[in-house]
Design a protein around this nucleic acid. Structure first.
Lengths: 335, 335
DNA sequence: GCTTGGCACTCCGGTCGGCCGAGTGCCAGA
DNA sequence: TCTGGCACTCGGCCGACCGGAGTGCCAAGC
């Protein structure tokens, strides 16, 4: 009995604190939420919650503030996902449907997420590793110089200029194109790489191009690409600028860091929520991450999510992240 | 005679203020710079400079701060470009030479500029408008669906998926590819667009693909692409966060705004310096822009530069911007 | 006529003390 | 088990105060 009410109090504290950004006291609590009990009772509950480590008070005589553990309890047991409004659903659909290519999808997703959550949004470009080769194109620029273009199933395109030791005529070029496509087209990256490497040793004439293609495929730089948006939302942080915003701003620049922050892509519909110190970086102990994997056919090719202060609107952010991830996945299904 | 010293005083004020971020007084001025006169003399000069509008005092009994007009005088007549150190030159060369494609060049330039100037760096992707078509590739995905790939002389690649009303066999595909390349390859964008549009009307079978290609070429979205870096440097702003950083953070998100900020690309070696209110946006009245055009053969295909507080290190920023622009241009020359 | 030292004045920024109010913990009573 | 009452704590705000940096002006000197 009391246990239920205690949790209700915790939920109320989290909601109020997120809304006002100020420590919340017992009186204000019973007024704003219809708890049906007196402030004194709430005070007892608060004392118990503090004892258990869910909340804390910044100063002896101030209101209470949720701890990371309190937020954790909130998202695990108390939060119900805020359903997206019709307008929001429509916005997601119309904005994302207007995308012309993969890059555009990613960029639009980032903007969308940032707008929906009013937070910093991060979207990882789909990784090469699990996609397949759709086509390889080889174009002569000069007789001794070709452009190799690699088109992947995710819609990503990579291109490299290759210098050749010897000149190539049209027939040789066509042969080269055929050989490369034969070993690579339709294969997943890993197999295409080994195929191309073998081709390079078996037929030395193809070596320069095949090597470059294999390299482009296994280039980890591409795996580290992310798009970031909504940095302007950091301006709303208000208090504790140096403490919270500076490290986050730095993390945003370092895309590699962002990726570790997003964490491993989760499969299916699972949302990952990392609260404060649970994350991998101490500097970001006061920021939380809400993320999930996305990709065609519910296979998590990459991760997207939002980063914000621990005091963030978890139900709203979680709903937005999930909705966008689902929609993007559906688009990738069709492509 | 006095005039010369007055300008020396102005220069000293700008340098000191940029270094310390604090209003500079007459006493500190004669101490740190070997002016050879007494503080009282400097005070008279300062009064004159204030009269002419080059400096101002925030409060009755504080030191002086340069006005926008003061900075303008400084960059026009007093500043000598800070030569790049050997280490810096080498850093530019090694970092930029490692780039694998156009996107990579742009991204590396942004990081480089941000690091060199410790400021927010902005690099516009080379515009389509003055480049030529290197090659068009058309790849079948399914019989009624093709991928059109457009390769430009700047190294940029655009790709679009096109749905066809009727199925295409290999011969028809080859024919389509040939026709498109015949009208477009080697042409500048504007001519290629008209050529493709004519092709679409003359040979209706080619219409869907030709239209999409023409559209991709004239797509102004591509003209608006910019890369931004060094946002973390905003954390060093310290004072006046809401006033200075917030609007800048917002501008960084809006790439279109950034482009108007960078302004028209200047040709040749000319550096554009816009100080405070001289820029197009009132919200950014306390930020300055140092920019210049870049591109192969000294033809300004795009603009790059840095954005920072009016109180910035102009000699250093100008030197860095010019050095990076020159080096990038040289790379594009070779490509 | 320019420069200089002296001097009175202004005003910013930091510190100190006191007050107020929000919020708490505890206790006795229902 | 809940509730009302009460004493207590402490942070934030306001006003006063003070020191210091810097200025403007003036009269004297080179």
């Amino acid at each position: 009995m009391q246990d239920d009410r205690r949790l209700a109090v915790l939920r109320a504290i989290v909601e109020d604190y997120v809304a006002t950004e100020e420590p919340v006291g017992s009186k204000a609590l019973v007024e704003r939420h219809g708890l049906g009990v007196s402030p004194a009772t709430v005070r007892n509950d608060m004392a118990a919650l503090e004892e258990e480590g869910f909340i804390t008070q910044p100063h002896t005589s101030a209101g209470r503030v949720p701890t990371d553990k309190g937020y954790r309890m909130f998202v695990d047991r108390l939060a119900t996902l805020k359903p997206m409004s019709v307008a929001e659903r429509r916005a997601i659909a119309t904005i994302l449907d207007g995308a012309v290519d993969l890059d555009d999808v990613v960029q639009r997703s980032v903007r969308l997420l940032a707008q929906l959550t009013r937070q910093v949004a991060v979207v990882q470009y789909p990784t090469l590793s699990r996609s397949t080769v759709r086509h390889i194109e080889i174009v002569a620029l000069t007789p001794s110089r070709v452009l190799a273009v690699l088109i992947l199933s995710t819609g990503r395109v990579e291109q490299r200029v290759v210098e050749l030791a010897t000149d190539l005529d049209d027939a040789a070029l066509a042969d080269l194109r055929l050989r490369c496509n034969t070993v690579a087209t339709g294969e997943i990256i890993a197999d295409a790489v080994t195929g191309l490497r073998r081709l390079a040793t078996e037929a030395p004439a193809t070596a320069p191009v095949a090597e470059v293609l294999a390299e482009a495929m296994s280039d980890h730089r591409s795996d580290e690409r992310v798009a970031v948006g909504g940095a302007a939302n950091l301006a709303r942080y208000g208090a504790s600028f140096d403490l919270d915003v500076r490290p986050l701003l730095e993390a945003i620049e370092e895309h590699v860091v962002l990726l570790t922050l997003l964490g491993e892509a989760t499969t299916g519909d699972t949302l990952t929520v990392r609260i404060g110190h649970e994350g991998p970086l101490q500097e970001l102990a006061s920021t939380s991450v809400v993320a999930t994997g996305y990709g065609p056919g519910n296979e998590a090719l990459a991760t997207l999510g939002v980063v914000g202060p621990t005091r963030m609107d978890y139900p709203g952010s979680m709903a937005a992240v999930r909705a966008v991830a689902r929609y993007v996945s559906r688009i990738l299904d069709e492509a």
